[in-house]
Nucleic acid binder design. Structure first.
Length: 154
DNA sequence: GCCAACGTTGGC
DNA sequence: GCCAACGTTGGC
């Protein structure tokens, strides 16, 4: 089983939105970055655990945990001219963008902010805390995962 | 709202 | 294939 972190803007789709979905499950659509797409298409497996991260907000940070319930399949919003994620280059026969389905598991007992994460030397090589990082999906090592979860109860 | 960092596009 | 211009991300 692998670990991941996925970013989303709470104004657009936050962890509470996911929690309120039927079966607390939704597809992670709208990713339009090749590196992130490749991870969803090729690497994420059912059961993988994911940190739900709120970006572009007052206090960016890790809010909770979700898990992969369906592996990579074509992102249909790329085919929908009405969608803000429409991509004329993507077709049914040759889909360019992929998504996975995720299910809400739980909120952390407290939010672990980016500012706090940056203070911990043990995780300073996480892409998340590195300058200029813009990846919206990134792998998290088991070591980092456990370290961050331990911060929850401090 | 600003702006640094980075990815993508397209002219040549 | 290079690289300048442009668009987007996302912290602050």
């Amino acid at each position: 089983m692998k670990y991941w972190l996925m970013k989303s803007e709470p104004e657009v789709f936050g962890i509470d939105h996911l929690k309120q979905m039927p079966e607390q499950t939704d597809h992670w659509d709208g990713v339009r970055n090749y590196q992130a797409r490749n991870m969803m298409r090729d690497q994420m497996r059912v059961g993988d655990q994911i940190f739900f991260y709120h970006s572009n907000t007052k206090e960016p940070g890790i809010m909770g945990i979700m898990e992969v319930v369906r592996e990579g399949y074509p992102d249909h919003t790329a085919l929908d001219p009405e969608s803000r994620y429409f991509d004329p280059e993507s077709t049914l026969e040759n889909p360019r963008w992929y998504m996975v389905d995720v299910r809400y598991k739980r909120h952390l007992q407290r939010n672990i902010t980016l500012a706090e994460l940056k203070q911990h030397q043990s995780i300073h090589d996480m892409p998340l805390v590195r300058r200029g990082n813009r990846l919206s999906i990134m792998p998290v090592t088991g070591e980092h995962w456990r370290y961050i979860l331990n911060l929850e109860t401090i």
